[in-house]
Design a protein around this nucleic acid. Sequence first.
DNA 1: CTTGATTATGTGCGCGAGTCATATAAAAGA
DNA 2: TCTTTTATATGACTCGCGCACATAATCAAG
Lengths: 170, 170
Amino acid sequence: MTERLENLVGAFANSIADAVLTAAKDEVDVAGPSAAALALIQHEPGIAIETLRTGLALTHAGTVRLIDRLEGAGLVERSASQIDKRAVALSLTAEGEAVAAAILARRQSVISHSLKSLSVKEREALERIVEKLLQATVKDVAHAYAICRLCDDEACEDCPIEAGLESSPT
Amino acid sequence: MTERLENLVGAFANSIADAVLTAAKDEVDVAGPSAAALALIQHEPGIAIETLRTGLALTHAGTVRLIDRLEGAGLVERSASQIDKRAVALSLTAEGEAVAAAILARRQSVISHSLKSLSVKEREALERIVEKLLQATVKDVAHAYAICRLCDDEACEDCPIEAGLESSPT
DNA sequence: CTTGATTATGTGCGCGAGTCATATAAAAGA
DNA sequence: TCTTTTATATGACTCGCGCACATAATCAAG
């Protein structure tokens, strides 16, 4: 009946997502999928293009071009995978690491700023609720990659998304 | 110190925003900004292109082309504004109304679905928290348009964003 | 070990969407 | 009235992405 909550949650999601994206674009000149790609590669060095693709919701071709651009910008390196000779192992260059770190820090700061009006109790409540929601939401590994595409894995101990995945195996 | 909350909130925002966007694209074949444009026009019939632009974070030219496409698709109509003869008054066609309604309903359903694991108490807590956050976040009218770009105004009584705007006048 | 199916990547071509610069008309201000 | 600002439109161009297709490697049988 009451659709108010859904409206507010949607607006809140818009607000946060917008702020993070524009922050990434302002800080370093890196558009949406590029930022996510850098973060994912930093999170999992040696990741294959195909795996990356599942987290970016792009086509093969689109992902290859994206990597082409990032490689051209000197942020990402392709190397031959040892395990699978078809696959490409992606890694960040020193500059790529720096940019990825800047993006993650910026995101952290933007979100933190937008939460600053909350009391400690409210933070705790929000954390519990969001944790529960994420855990219930994750569908499969690709979905987890997509959701966590801009997470800082260093900061996310006890990731509820991983936990959610284990409890509902694909 | 604890950056975990920020990570979780960011992931949650991603999750919701993605789900809403893909839902809009699946349901009707309407990409991101188009959906937002339809919702905003529905929310405020007779809205000018320039006003619309502020809510979409596009260029002027980009907004004009967007309206061109939506008009070409038979979803939107341009008419002369009575008040300002330079301006264009935008309105939805019958089909546009239907599509907009479908998008809003789909969004409602998607978000509602992702909140279904919460108890009544948790919903109430989340509503209070998000309300507070939105109220503190809104900067100006353009920002409000952007945040609420996919809101169903019918469902949003007592919109905290409007309240937040009044308390901090531009 | 050979052969066919699947998987990971790369590429030519084209389109859609958006920006920049510029143009025109109307409103506002001096 | 003259100048400046505002709202819209358009031509030229760019960029990112998808589709269709090609190649190489792995896997799965037989």
